[in-house]
Each structure stands twice: as structure tokens, then as C-alpha cells.
Design a protein around this nucleic acid. Structure first.
Lengths: 228, 228
DNA sequence: GCATTACCTTGACTTATGTCAAAATTAGGT
DNA sequence: ACCTAATTTTGACATAAGTCAAGGTAATGC
């Protein structure tokens, strides 16, 4: 399949690698196929390698004793995940589940560590990826600890608008329930805040499509605003 | 100074490096001395390298628009910090300030990247360190989002007890105000919860010394308990 | 096309935790 | 040892956000 090499050749992890080196990666990678809503691993599982999304979507999440879920990441094509225990040992720090029918590559630990030792640029790429994730987590901790839910939502909406580059119309790529979990809240609270923002003409909600009516107002809210 | 090479030779980052390689590190490192309570860098600063604590203590933290602080890490001798922008580019993701009079080593970015390219074990050490931090952040996000303050405190106290290995008597290495900031709350709330735990004979508080009277109760609370 | 399921919204209520203010305690510097 | 400043504690109060429950809407499969 040509597609697979296309995906991995464009993944930041394999940036700058030669065709031959990409071939080596493909050699050690094992294809895995999952239906929607399937568990890829649980945080209690031992780790013998990590994964790369070829197609589909995967969420990385934690669950509390009471059953509340916090999503840490949502990964799509080209993103690696589950690599923490490859380098730090021990078990996975969180759970992984497919949000869509997905095609993953599994990269066995030892084979990858051997490759890294031979190719310094692969090590630097992985360092860059882990650093970006530390950066993301820093933002997430800041949001959870220092901002209220309306500010987190405003922040997410403006981020999405930049990401999708589709003007002021944004479409949620996950359900509102999952968005609540990503923002560290519950569906009821998210629903109420969307309704409030709607009423104040900050946004216009139509199902999963949201129009940002007042970008400045949202950005202000994301930084330090209160929603009346 | 012999002490410096002692510290860096025992730092996990330099694990397994030869005397010669350690000497190379020392060559490129620049000594920096700070009094207590001094800013090492701010999140808006550009980054030309990262730091290693030789002596003293440094906090990495975020501040909200309203002035509330969230501590992300507290680092002591042997710990590197500020390395995220070295690999991912851009600015520092958070602020750094000394909690004590401190001696730091500054490692310039390019010199370090050159070293890493030559020494794969240095890259693997750094990957291990960043992975451990991702793991820590996962726990911190779980705590902030899925646990209440009493559970976070109980978790911190049992962690400290294991860390200090001094039986059931623990002594806080930071002020209660800073502990509140580390746990994602404010001094008033922390004070009230300590008083409650005291009243329920879970702990006995004497200034910065805390005796864990009911380890099982605390561990239960840390997982899923409520404090009446 | 209909039924079953999952998802979303709204209302009434509870609660953990933050805010503000003041007193009490502790720690540091001269 | 003293004085000032920082830290910690306590109280009264406000509020963001969670819980529980019910109704409505949209989506999915047969």
C-alpha cells in the first residue's frame, strides 16, 4: 500500500529521513485495525512499543473513580502516541480508544530504540514531538487550574478557527460530550455555556457548526474574561 | 570546583557518559548564580539554551490574569529545566524563579544539540526525562480535573512520605502557600483541609512537620475518598 | 420509514472552592 | 531579643460548576 508510506513520510516524527530509512520503519511496523470505540490500550497495560495513526482518530484519556473522563489528546493521521513508556519504562500513563474506525501502525520498542541510536535526526524529531506535548500539557494545566470553563471554551473555539482556516465558521470534529471531556467539564455545563454565548451574540450554534460572531470578544474571554 | 562535576555526573541526563564527555558538557556550560526569589526566565522570553540546577531550588509556574499562580514543577540539584524550546523552538512555556539561593548551569542550545547528535545515549537520556515529565503532567491533569483538593493533598502527603522514607513523619520542603499553588488551590482552602484532616485523625500537623496517622485512610482518600 | 439508541438541553438543587477581611502565628533581619 | 514583614489561620459570604432527573432532538440500524 502506497498510502501508508505517504502518511509516515509526512509525519513530523520521520521528517528528513531517507527513502531507505522510511523503508526500515515500514519493515518493523505492524498494521493494526480497529472499529470505532475500541480500546487500543489501558493505562494498566504493559508497553512493548508505540503507535502511529495512519487513518482514523484516537483519544487518549483518564477516568476518575466516579467515572468522569478527562481527554488528554485526540490524535489523527501522522501522530504517534503511547511513546512515553518506550523511553521512561513502566506502563502507559493513560488509556487510548478509537473515536473512528482506525488503521494504526504498531512500532515495537526495541526495534525503534535501535533505529534511534543509528539516526540522530530521528532522536531529535522525537525530542521535538515530546517537547511540543509538554507545551500542550502546560497549556492544559493552565486552563484547568487558572481559567474557568467559558474561557477554556472560547480558547478552544478560536484555536479551532485558526486550525480550520475556514473564516469564522467552525465545525466541531468531535461530539459535544467529548468536547466537554476535553475541556475538563461535563456535557450539561458545556451546553449551558454554549447557550449563554449564543444569547450574548458571541457565537451562533447550529448543531456541530458554530459561527464566531465576535472574535475579539472571544479572545478577550479566553484570556481573562467573565461571562455574565 | 569538584562539586559541579559531581552533581552533573549523577544527573540522570548525563547517565552513562564518559569522563571525557562530562568534561565536554562542563566546557559548554555557563555558571549562573541567583539569590532567593529571583526570576530565571519568563514565558515571554526567547530561549537560547536550558538550565541545570547545581544547588538550590527552582519553581516552574504559570500565573493567571487575576494573579493566581499554578506551580508546574519544583526542581532541585541534578534536574534540568527550560529544555522544551530547545527542541520545539519558540519561547519558554512557563516562568522560572528560584525558591532558594541557587547555582545553575546554563547550557547553550546549539552546543547541546551538537553534542546530542554525536552521543545517542545523551539523546535517549533526554527522551527518558521528557517522557517522565509527560507522565508527571498526566498525573497533574488527572488531579486537577478528576480529583478534589483533599484527594490531591492526601496524594501529595503519601508521595512525600515515600520520597523522604522517614516513616510516617513528613516535613514540607516548601511553604504551605507554595504547596497550595502546587496543588492547584489557594492557601485558605489548603489550611482548612489540613485542619479537617487533623480533626479526623488522618494527620497531625505541627508547622511544617506532618505525621501521617492513618496511611490507609489517606491512600483511600487519594484514590476516591471524600472528606466529611 | 420506523424504532431504538445515543446525544443534547433545560431545570431545580447541592456543594466544593474561591473571595474578602481580619486576627494570629511564625520567620527574618538588624 | 525585638520589630517588622511574611505566612497562616479563621470566619462570613459568593459563586462556578457539579448532580440528578426529565424531556427533546438527532442519529443509526434494521
Amino acid at each position: 500500500m502506497k498510502k501508508i508510506l505517504d502518511i509516515i513520510s509526512q509525519a513530523p516524527l520521520f521528517n528528513g529521513l531517507s527513502q531507505e530509512q522510511l523503508g526500515q520503519i515500514r519493515q518493523i511496523a505492524i498494521d493494526k485495525f480497529y472499529d470505532k470505540g475500541k480500546t487500543v490500550f489501558l493505562e494498566s497495560d504493559d508497553c512493548n512499543g508505540f503507535y502511529i495513526v495512519v487513518a482514523g482518530k484516537v483519544k487518549i484519556y483518564k477516568v476518575s473513580f466516579e467515572g468522569k473522563e478527562q481527554i488528554l489528546h485526540i490524535y489523527g493521521p501522522g501522530n504517534p502516541f503511547g511513546e512515553v513508556p518506550v523511553f521512561s519504562g513502566r506502563k502507559f500513563p493513560a488509556n487510548a480508544e478509537t473515536l473512528l474506525k482506525s488503521h494504526l501502525l504498531f512500532i515495537p520498542r526495541q526495534a525503534f530504540v535501535d533505529l534511534i541510536s543509528e539516526h540522530p535526526s530521528l532522536a531529535l524529531n522525537m525530542l521535538a514531538i515530546l517537547s511540543m506535548r509538554l507545551r500542550q500539557f502546560t497549556v492544559q494545566i493552565e486552563n484547568l487550574s487558572l481559567k474557568e470553563v467559558p474561557a477554556r471554551l472560547a480558547s478552544y473555539l478560536t484555536y479551532l478557527a485558526d486550525e480550520q482556516a475556514t473564516g469564522d465558521v467552525v465545525s466541531l470534529t468531535i461530539s459535544k460530550g467529548q468536547l466537554a471531556s476535553l475541556l475538563g467539564t461535563i456535557p450539561e455545563t458545556l451546553s449551558r455555556i454554549l447557550a449563554k454565548m449564543n444569547k450574548q451574540n458571541l457565537i451562533q450554534v447550529e448543531g456541530r457548526n458554530i459561527t464566531l460572531l465576535n472574535r475579539n470578544g472571544l479572545e478577550e474571554l479566553a484570556q481573562h474574561g467573565k461571562l455574565q
